[in-house]
């Protein structure tokens, strides 16, 4: 069953001058994670805001858990959780106060709201900071608290808009852990991200969007296949480069390429780890010690480049120049 469906969504801002969504189609299967991947300004926040009833589309329609978001927003709000792009919590209040207040707004009653707040603080490792105002929290703690606030009543569908933007690598890892836990619990999740790696880590399914349209859709693996298969990569000492190229070419069946500066030898392979093992064995009997060896799958950066003809990063620069 599809828990989220968006059909032909169009949304313009500034009296039609900015076309944020341009006929966007999406769906999320129940109990799965869809990552909406796109550069700045692609329309990620706009989709999330439409699906969470905060914004009305100009045209097209959307359903969440079978409920129409335009005609029946009150019902939709009862089944969703939202953690927006910027952590939306009261800075001055403590983490505990925030969660209790949201619990009461979900009509849990004071007692239940307190119990739930403490549970969530514990679960997101915020118990120690519970009685401190949010303004003393780190970016990662804020994000976690914001996420906690969207989970007070277990939502059927959770929307996370760029949950790790602005976090340092450690904060990002923590957030990923938290999200993976949630997913195990069976929630249907739509998350947006600019990080290709993040989509790869968290999502069952990826929708790549650019200028308000989905330009590719599929599993991370399928998207990567679209761009090309795996590559074998070996780094060796300078004196072994020539011999290693021979070995790799033989195993691959294609002529190996060389990056001279890095002494990196690469070749496409179709047999994955078998090819890797063969190369290691041959290197070993030739008495060559590889400094680095591995199978590399194309990154989602490569995917973006192949799909749009530009990388996500270049796109951002262009946008900023225009502004």
């Amino acid at each position: 069953m599809k828990t989220v469906i968006a059909e032909n969504l169009v949304k313009t801002y500034d009296k039609g001058k900015v076309r944020a969504l341009d006929g966007l189609n999406l769906d999320v299967e129940e109990g799965t994670v869809l990552s909406v991947l796109g550069p700045n300004g692609a329309g990620k926040t706009t989709v999330v805001r439409i699906l969470t009833t905060l914004l009305r589309p100009d045209s097209g329609n959307a359903q969440v858990a079978g409920i129409d978001v335009v005609n029946n927003p009150e019902k939709v709000r009862e089944v969703i959780g939202l953690s927006g792009q910027y952590a939306a919590v009261d800075e001055i209040l403590t983490g505990y106060d925030n969660l209790v207040m949201f619990g009461e707004l979900y009509h849990l009653g004071k007692k239940q709201a307190v119990v739930r707040a403490n549970e969530l603080l514990e679960r997101f490792s915020l118990t120690e900071a519970a009685k401190r105002p949010i303004k003393t929290y780190s970016g990662g703690m804020r994000r976690r608290l914001d996420l906690a606030a969207s989970l007070i009543v277990k939502p059927k569908v959770l929307f996370l808009d760029e949950p790790t933007t602005g976090l340092d690598p450690r904060g990002r890892q923590e957030m990923w852990g938290v999200i993976q836990e949630l997913v195990k619990g069976g929630v249907t999740l739509l998350l947006t991200t600019q990080y290709l790696e993040e989509a790869d880590q968290l999502a069952d399914d990826i929708a790549v969007i650019d200028t308000g349209k989905v330009i590719a859709r599929g599993t991370s693996d399928a998207l990567k296949k679209q761009v090309g298969g795996e590559r074998l990569e070996v780094v060796v000492e300078q004196q072994h480069v020539a011999k290693t190229m021979e070995i790799v070419s033989a195993v691959s069946g294609h002529k190996a390429g060389l990056d001279e500066g890095l002494r990196l030898i690469t070749a496409p392979v179709s047999t994955g780890s078998v090819a890797l093992f063969e190369v290691l064995k041959s290197l070993d009997s030739a008495g060559i010690h590889a400094l680095d060896v591995g199978l590399k799958r194309p990154s989602l950066d490569d995917v973006f480049l192949a799909l749009t003809g530009h990388t996500a990063e270049v796109k951002i620069e262009e946008k900023e120049v225009k502004k």
């Binding site: 009833t53 905060l54 939202l82 952590a87 939306a88 919590v89 707004l105």
Partner: peptide, 13 residues
């Protein structure tokens, strides 16, 4: 500015 209104508006209240 803090996005709090978005949060409140997404609640079933």
């Amino acid at each position: 500015k803090k996005g709090l209104i978005d949060r409140f508006r997404s609640l079933p209240i």
